[in-house]
């Protein structure tokens, strides 16, 4: 698979770090600190539902990070390990 250019990767990473920082800001939901209602789905107090949303948002943000901004050095290292293992006649899945 072709590696995205390093500059584009860094830009994506910077953008995604900003998204993660935004999640940290949104985590401070002072606006309904004292509120229990409305109840989301009829039973989730609004403050808990919001924080659950933060967790789901974090999952998506990290998914984007590993898909679009995974460090090139780590991929290179995996590739060189795999090449070295093949050179020794060993498959990287651990099977002989």
């Amino acid at each position: 698979m072709t590696q995205p250019p390093a500059k584009a990767r860094r830009q994506r990473a910077a953008f995604l770090y900003m998204v993660i920082f935004a999640l940290c800001v949104l985590h401070q939901d002072f606006w309904w600190w004292e509120e229990a209602e409305p109840l989301v789905f009829g039973f989730l107090p609004i403050g808990l539902a919001w924080q659950l949303g933060i967790s789901l948002g974090a999952t998506l943000a990290w998914l984007a990070m590993v898909c679009f901004a995974w460090p090139a050095q780590l991929d290179d290292f995996d590739a060189s390990e795999a090449r070295a293992a093949q050179g020794l006649g060993v498959h990287t899945d651990g099977q002989p």
Binding site: H27, D29, G47, L48, Q51, A58, M65, V66
Partner: peptide
């Protein structure tokens, strides 16, 4: 319910950050 925001949703963000920046 504040306990979830304190421990869980913070951890969801920060733990993954540690795995990404430190663990790998």
């Amino acid at each position: 319910i504040g306990v979830y925001g304190l421990m869980a949703s913070w951890s969801g963000i920060i733990h993954s950050l540690c795995f990404f920046l430190i663990g790998a």
